[in-house]
Amino acid sequence: MSLSVNNLSILDSAQQPLFAPITFTVSPGEILTLMGPSGCGKSSLLSAVAGHKSADFSYQGECYYQQRLLNALPAEKRNIGILFQDDLLFPHLNIWENLAIALPNHIKKAQRKIQALKTLTELNLVELADKSPMQISGGQRARISMMRLLLAEPAVVLLDEPFSKLDKSLRSEFRNWVFSQTRSRQLPVLMVTHDVDDVPVGSKCLHWPWNKETLDA
């Protein structure tokens, strides 16, 4: 159940690679962090893995989930969840609807609301159910956004600087919560960031320019 990337490189619009081809594997429950300055292509790398096309870049190399080649699959078939620094909750839906929209199709009708409310109860946020995304705090939005991602039952989780917009006080608490969620579900997690504090203790981390692996302690 692992995510593997083989000789992946991002090319800019002039077909020039932004970094030397990179190869790594993330096992279930493991968190791999890619550190790098802004503009180094780390967000584009996540987009390439997730399958989101862009006019500004292309890529070379392969992505595998287990032994299955992902390259030809459209983004929605890859079963890869991605969390951005903005929560990107849908503004026209209230909080429970934002969760319900992510539930798998086999959960029908009334069950969807029940499931969404159950999730909110587990998070101790059930009083937010009927509020709009703009009415709740940034920290709450971040949690709902992560929960929405997990409700879609992804096989892999990608984190694109997910903590950088949060207040310092909220950041470590939310970070620990996110990693405990992905670890308990045994999900492989690939994170990109430029903040050393984001790297969880004892996990693998690749520092720019990503050619040497360090174990963060």
């Binding site: 983004a75 991605i82 951005f84 992510a102 879609a152």
Partner: peptide, 25 residues
């Protein structure tokens, strides 16, 4: 674009994202 990316990461294809998420907006 960001809506489509978010929707795709939740497993919605293009048509589903447009009809379920963009249409009501």
């Amino acid at each position: 674009n960001t809506t489509l990316i978010t929707a795709q990461s939740l497993g919605y294809n293009n048509a589903q994202a447009w009809q379920k998420i963009i249409l009501p907006q």
